[in-house]
Design a protein around this nucleic acid. Structure first.
Length: 331
DNA sequence: CGCGGTTTGCGGTCAATGCA
DNA sequence: TGCATTGACCGCAAACCGCG
């Protein structure tokens, strides 16, 4: 700033005012300063700005764990992409947690809060009685949740209506003629999974369809389940829904092992449209929950909060769409 | 009153200094 | 020698102030 001021023949404060878009600077002076900045290639120093503003211009992103299963889920990277887009446009950067287990994660987040490494946080999951959310709440740090708000009143959260999305998907499959549907859900008691199960059951009850929901914890679970329901049973399901695309990928492998053809022998549908579902063999009918929009909305909203702008909602629901693909085509 | 210069202090590190 | 204290320093924002 000193160099720029010298180059433009003004005081450093004048340079500061031009950068901050402060009023009461004549256009002539402003232009003079901008010319000097561009001549010298000057970029403001964020570390120095943090010193005086006490703002890091960083958003902390908390993911439930940093295991490959979660990191490599396209849903995750799509959400992060949305968040980063919002942050990039509005001058913020992001910092994500890397811990793989909840104890480490707790300390990582605590350090981030206490060292003032971020101005606000986005929780990328929602969990009942989550110690990490308690931490954010106790320290009075601005945060919002992608998913349901389960622990405190009036916490801003960005979500899909997963009950409705599952209901719609089941209805869609019913209209295709399916009368025996198997629903496979991931383990872990996360709200999304539970809601998708609820929506599925609701529609089945409505039309008096018998239904089975199985919790899958491992690849062996999955093999046992398919053997039991699709090989050994007399009345096999005509379609299998998976609560997430990663589980869907594993299912495709198991069906291949048992030489069950999709869509001829059994059909499949899943939640979370992505590159994976588009390019699977065959391409998978899936529910697009628009993770990029979830991320973009979350990013923009937390920045609004940090800028003390009034937020008109506590809950924002992002729409979902069923994407029809080969896995549920009529034969 | 518009404009812009002077000065201070943000939070932490590190070297110099003071004191027992 | 070992410890505590002080002050310079980083780049910037803004309170404060003065000129015309």
């Amino acid at each position: 700033m000193k160099d720029v001021a010298k180059e433009a023949n003004v005081a450093t404060s004048t340079v500061s005012r031009v950068i901050r878009n402060n009023a009461k600077i004549s256009e002539a002076t402003s232009n003079k300063v901008k010319a000097a900045m561009s001549k010298l290639g000057y970029i403001p120093n964020q570390a120095a700005r943090t010193l005086i503003t006490n703002k890091t211009m960083t958003i902390g992103l908390i993911q439930k764990s940093s295991t490959p299963e979660i990191r490599q889920n396209p849903f995750n990277s799509d959400v992060l992409n949305g968040i980063n887009q919002a942050c990039n446009v509005r001058g913020y950067s992001t910092r994500m947690t890397v811990s793989e287990n909840s104890r480490d994660l707790y300390h990582e987040v605590k350090t981030m809060i206490q060292s003032k490494s971020a101005d606000g946080f986005i929780l990328l999951y929602s969990l009942k009685d989550d110690p990490i959310e308690h931490l954010l709440y106790e320290f009075k740090v601005p945060y919002l949740i992608i998913g349901k708000s389960l622990n405190y009143e009036n916490i801003i959260h960005i979500d899909n209506n997963n009950i409705d999305a599952a209901y719609q998907l089941t209805q869609y499959l019913y209209h295709l003629g399916h009368r025996h549907i198997l629903f496979l859900q991931e383990s872990g008691h996360y709200a999304v999974t539970e809601d998708r199960t609820v929506g599925f059951k609701q529609y089945c009850d409505n039309v008096k369809l018998s239904n089975d929901c199985i919790v899958i914890k491992s690849m062996n679970d999955l093999r046992d389940c398919i053997k039991q329901y699709c090989i050994d049973a007399s009345h096999t399901p005509s379609v299998i829904i998976t609560s997430d695309a990663m589980l869907n990928m594993q299912l495709l492998n198991v069906l291949y092992e048992y030489q069950l053809r999709i869509p001829e022998d059994v059909q499949t549908a899943t939640f979370n449209t992505s590159f994976l579902t588009e390019n699977a063999t065959p391409s998978q009918t899936s529910v697009n929950i628009n993770p990029d929009v979830l991320g973009l909305t979350a990013g923009n909203t937390i920045i609004d909060v940090l800028r003390n702008e009034t937020i008109s909602f506590r809950e924002k629901l992002i729409s979902t769409q069923i994407i029809e693909r080969v896995s549920t085509t009529k034969i």
